[in-house]
Design a protein around this nucleic acid. Structure first.
Lengths: 343, 343
DNA sequence: GTGAAAGCGCTAACAC
DNA sequence: GTGTTAGCGCTTTCAC
């Protein structure tokens, strides 16, 4: 019944454990006959090496840790699929943890994964992370880490990102071209570089098109839209302005659907009264009412590239001198929610 | 720098490893002073026990494995959140694996988790799993397993499910009451009990309302809607029937949005021409066009109950004589997609 | 009250 | 070509 070990095989075959071990690893120094004997017996008994023992010995585990803000988000779940597919084919296992946008959980997860001897880490920062020492120390110690999407500016390592500036710029310009002038921007705390970049793209597009930037059109949701109340409050402020916006650019999945929801509740016609464009990887964007213009990120590819870089780092421990940052383009999927109606 | 071990502490304090070990576990047989000394030094050096070593020794890991069909699905990701929250508070870690509706991956994941010495397993079957020996053997060996949502009929253990029959019955009856007569049912392969139960509820509702069951109104998508082509094909068949349906009951998340998508593409007015009700936990159901009537499952609670049962099983290894099956009620969220228009 | 030693499963020097 | 041994980090008998 229970799991069989090398020792059991050795005993059964009247060999030493080291011989069995060598035979199983097909070592050149073992007699062909002995090998065959061992292999067949192992096969027959369904022998499987104990990965825990291997991890303890080698301080590695052929597994990589992934820390993301949350799973219940299409962008991240698509990303995970990208990660898993590559990792799996390269013989690595993927262990996923959620920070739930909490700095403490991010740290706790990191520590746990490290103690579990993952060979490397793939991380997308929580929106409330400002202190990065837990990662800096790890990198210092030689732990391979690759950041994606929400990456830190101050850490030198491989990164996989999206051109947020451009994505935001294009979306904003698209709104302008469809005749909007009072474009609001709904975003998350600016700790994250993705938020600053998206804000910058938005500003630049306004500027390039001769529209003055108005700070009161920018609303920050500190929990990134996780709390609906926060979302609604921000939207209410916008709607009750003397000159309410005629378009909104929402900076994340959560923010986008939250925004759409509030507009619905207030019976505001989209796009006639207010146009909406959002960063989102939601699968049903074209089935929404109205079909939603979306800034989409190539999540799957990002995940694939991220693991690829990570595994390269893991398997080439010689200090890499220059790290790369792979940048993807977002794609603007234009749909009704931003249709021109005023130009 | 690197991680510090009990041995390091022992050496530094001129004690034996066993004394240090005992002191850290606050054993009664250790001198208070020694304890204090050890504790403080350990604290100062950020000592953390190596979980791998513990797992190797004790053949357990304070972690539970979760095997689900896929993460990129609101129902499952909400469920995971339920699992994680409870597991975390009880000191267990959660390791998530996706079967991607593949029997082989399900088996591979199971084996891996077992070899990694998870203390228990939480599983929702892949839609293509018909052979259950891999789970049966494990249970035989004493591995705690709790199934949820997609549960096997033939295995005796704790289960957490939803009353699929009733959910389906209510949804169907609702369609009938809103004036529909030719109600189609879009479902996945009937290997899964959830599929047979939903089908049964649908049939019974028809019967109870004097509508003859017509097999040609039932379409099976073998990949559960994972393949859009499959989905479209099934829908096309329905639409090209001499008497196409005037309503559709979709049996899963994927199937529901796929169905909605095809109806859109074919410019079929919902609910005027065809009404739609679907099993789905999608968050934006009320933002869809039209707002979607949904059979919603209490995913979070199901996850919480499932871990709770599992951990009870883990921590009470004495053979439990009777296993329980906890059953939740679905809730029918009536929205426009099934509004009455013909009665 | 504390230490020595064995063992969890595996591999790799180092014998012979 | 095969066996012996030590060690990865930890706990736990068994001694003293």
């Amino acid at each position: 019944m229970e799991t069989i070990t090398i020792k059991d095989i050795a005993r059964a075959l009247n060999l030493s454990t080291s011989t069995v071990s060598r035979a199983l690893r097909n070592s050149y120094e073992i007699n062909a006959e002995t090998k065959k004997l061992v292999m067949e017996y192992a096969e027959k008994m369904h022998y499987r090496p104990n990965p825990i023992a291997l991890s303890l010995r080698d301080s590695k585990s052929k597994s990589i840790g992934v820390i993301i803000p949350e799973i219940a988000n299409n962008f991240f779940s698509q990303l995970i699929n990208g990660i898993e597919s590559i990792a799996y084919s390269l013989g690595y296992h993927t262990v996923i943890f959620q920070s739930h946008e909490s700095y403490e959980r991010e740290v706790a997860n990191t520590n746990y994964l490290v103690s579990r001897k993952v060979d490397g880490l793939l991380v997308s920062l929580s929106s409330l992370t400002t202190d990065l020492v837990h990662f800096e120390e790890l990198i210092e110690k030689g732990m391979p880490i690759v950041f994606f999407d929400r990456v830190p500016n101050d850490i030198e390592t491989h990164k996989v990102v999206v051109d947020n500036f451009l994505g935001s710029y294009e979306a904003t310009e698209h709104l302008i071209q469809s005749g909007r002038r009072r474009i609001a921007h709904l975003t998350s705390p600016i700790y994250l570089s993705i938020a600053t970049e998206r804000l910058a793209g938005y500003k630049k597009a306004l500027e390039d098109n001769g529209i003055a930037f108005d700070e009161s059109y920018v609303k920050y949701c500190h929990h990134g839209g996780k709390l609906t109340t926060e979302n609604e409050a921000a939207m209410q402020e916008l709607l009750s302005m003397p000159e309410p916006p005629d378009a909104i650019l929402a900076a994340s999945d959560r923010l986008t659907s939250g925004c759409l929801s509030v507009l619905h509740k207030n019976h505001i016609r989209i796009p006639e009264e207010i146009a909406l464009v959002g960063f989102t990887n939601i699968g049903v964007a074209d089935l929404l009412n109205p079909p939603l213009t979306a800034v989409v990120q190539p999540a799957m590819e990002m995940g694939q590239q991220a693991v690829e870089l990570l595994i390269r780092l893991i398997e080439n421990p010689k200090k890499i001198s220059k790290f790369e940052t792979r940048s993807f383009k977002t794609s603007l999927m234009v749909r009704e929610s931003s249709a021109g109606s005023r130009s």
